[in-house]
Design a protein around this nucleic acid. Structure first.
Length: 423
RNA sequence: GGAGAGGUGGCAGAGUGGUAAUGCAACAGCCUGCUAAGCUGUCAACGAGCAAUCGUUGCCAGGGUUCGAAUCCCUGUCUCUCCGCCA
């Protein structure tokens, strides 16, 4: 959620930026917010004055009663009747204005960082780095779903029986490999100074609002209606919401967390070849990293996080590429995002395995996540997060590129975790 | 699931109808040769003002009663204790 103060002072540049970079016109909404805010402040001023008057009268009445001047007190009481009514009316319109402003603010996407290239779709994303893949194009590479069947690693049909499409069952070495990857990612995170967290997989409504899944993406989360809880679509939700309504001390920044969780996504409306095999699932595992930083440092932190995630991919010896998302492909809440994609030699396409974003104050404003500087000033912190990494697509790329005629090699770094060298 | 108790600032803890004591911690300033102690002040949100400052709001949340609510009433929620069930 954008800060209302920024709309007061930089209304036109916000409209211009979102239009030019994201190609979305928010001018009507922003102007509307601006006008409502003026009205709201005016209303508050009036309301405050009346309330102040009321407070004075009330204490006078109290005085009079104490002194036994019942008649005087009753006279004063009469004065309050009209005042009370007006206060009620003003309070009502104040609340209405406040609600309208917040509803509108929820609909405005984050203002892209100046580094974000303009663009409409993923075709306009900027490719910053790409491993050479020409030598990897060969018909002899099987796609991972064939490999999974051949070596009995992941059973998609069995998952359909037990739950439904998109809930595969990992078996034997497939399950062990998955567990090895999780452990590898967590250990690497710990080594890089991220505190490990083990998290709830269900969250309440407030948490859904805190990180921005609600109200916009309500349909994408599984909802447990009896208890009004949501299954998390990403570990970001429980991790970041730890800091909802929190003021942290500057000296405790940056805060760094890593956590493994399963992720649940309804993916309503996705069908076709994109969902084949491990490409898109309703339940998948992910290790997530989150950082909370001072505003002055978040930019640098984002680069470090990208570098860190790249290092994981490199250790797994996977070909990958790095993209800077253009305005049109940038998520609603992000100010700047880098995507990392590994190459799937069996499908001959790139798979998004990590999305690393700086949200600047967009999330912290909604979360009320602030920090106290050394001279006692309170200011919104910046939040960042990224996948490190999403398991299924890593698994897909990994299985495909390490296949040979009689099996699949396990990358060097994972062998201590799996206990076997090949499948 | 049943019964009971409770939710007050960063923490501890008073307040049961007159507008949030006190202690600890933290931070700033003063004092000091240094440290400790001491003294003074501050602590959340919103608004008005160039500013010092002022006003309003804030005692789990939302309603209600009242001139006035942390305090009384209703609803919700969470925590704790006991019982039941249980990994």
């Amino acid at each position: 959620m954008l800060q209302i103060q920024k709309i007061r002072t930089h209304k036109d540049s916000i409209i211009k930026n979102i239009l030019e970079i994201r190609k979305v016109n928010v001018s009507d909404q922003i102007n509307n917010i601006y006008d409502l805010d003026l009205k709201k402040r005016d209303t508050q001023k009036n309301l405050d004055e009346l309330s102040a008057h009321m407070n004075v009268l009330s204490s006078q009445i109290g005085e009079q009663f104490k002194n036994g001047n019942i008649e005087k007190a009753n006279n004063l009481k009469q004065e309050t009747t009209l005042l009370k009514e007006n206060i009620k009316k003003l309070k009502l319109s104040f609340d209405e204005l406040d609600k309208s402003i917040i509803d509108l603010l929820y609909q405005i996407p984050n203002v892209p960082n100046q580094l974000v290239p303009p663009g409409k779709s993923e075709n306009d994303n900027e490719i910053i780095f790409s491993s050479p893949i020409d030598s990897l194009k060969s018909e002899s590479f099987l796609p991972h779903w064939d490999l999974c069947q051949k070596y009995d690693l992941i059973d998609f049909e069995l998952g359909v029986k037990v739950t439904g499409a998109g809930f595969p069952i990992y078996k034997g070495k497939g399950a062990i490999l998955q567990r090895a990857l999780i452990q590898f990612f967590l250990n690497e995170g710990n080594k890089s100074g991220y505190q490990e967290l083990s998290l709830p997989h269900l969250v309440n409504e407030s948490s859904g609002y805190g990180t921005g899944q609600l109200p916009d993406k309500e349909g994408q989360m599984y909802h447990v209606s009896v208890d009004d809880l949501y299954l998390i679509p990403t570990g970001e939700v429980p991790i970041t919401n730890i800091y909802r309504d929190v003021i942290v001390e500057e000296k405790d920044l940056p805060i760094k967390h890593v956590g493994y969780t399963p992720c649940f996504r309804r993916e309503a409306g996705s069908y076709g070849k994109d969902v084949r095999g491990l490409n898109r699932l309703h339940q998948f595992d992910k290790v997530e990293i989150v950082q909370i930083t001072k505003p002055s440092e978040s930019h640098q932190t984002l680069d470090q996080m990208v570098k860190y995630v790249e290092s994981l991919i490199k250790k797994l010896e996977l070909p990958y590429r790095k993209l800077k998302l253009c305005g049109g492909d940038l998520g609603f809440t992000a100010a700047l995002t880098y995507d990392l994609e590994t190459y799937s030699v069996g499908q001959e396409k790139w798979l998004e395995v990590s999305s690393i974003s700086n949200f600047e104050t967009f999330q912290s404003n909604r979360l009320k996540l602030r920090y106290r500087t050394q001279n006692r000033k309170i200011d919104l912190a910046h939040t960042l997060n990224g996948s490190a990494l999403a398991l299924p697509r890593i698994m897909a790329s990994l299985l495909e590129i390490n296949q040979n005629k009689d099996g699949i090699n396990v990358p060097e770094v994972l062998r201590t975790y799996t206990g076997f060298d090949s499948i």
